[in-house]
């Protein structure tokens, strides 16, 4: 069966000529992947595997760098570079500070 990322040859509508300047967070995600690759902590194949394992609903819903970010997080957890708990705590901290700032 064809996987959801395998789009070649499928029917689709017109190509919308969209472009946007990448946001800083998107560039950071890109840069993180390159640096993790340089350090031997993540390979392109792992990025692909994680993205192709997101499930079609998430794949469709997420933007390009959201997919990358989800994949990097998954691989970093898988490799034990960060833990789910650490990430959860850090995100809670950031959200708390953001709420205070509002």
């Amino acid at each position: 069966m064809r996987a959801y990322h395998d789009l070649g040859g499928l029917p689709a509508g017109p190509v919308e000529r969209a472009e946007h300047d990448y946001a800083l967070w998107e560039k950071r995600v890109d840069a993180m992947l390159v640096l993790l690759g340089d350090k031997g902590l993540m390979r392109t194949d792992e990025l692909r595997r994680a993205i192709e394992g997101l499930g079609s609903a998430a794949y469709e819903r997420m933007s390009y760098y959201e997919r990358w970010l989800a994949a990097i997080v998954e691989i970093m957890i898988e490799r034990g570079v960060v833990t789910v708990d650490e990430l959860g705590r850090k995100m809670a901290e950031i959200e708390e500070r953001r709420d205070e700032a509002l």
Partner: peptide, 28 residues
């Protein structure tokens, strides 16, 4: 949510010395 996740991951990688802030800036 993506921005918060990115920030959290980036800060953890900095704290653990996996990727420094300088390296990230230079790569961008």
């Amino acid at each position: 949510r993506a921005q918060i996740t990115e920030m959290a991951l980036r800060q953890l990688l900095h704290e653990k010395g996996v990727i420094t802030a300088d390296e990230l800036r230079r790569q961008i």
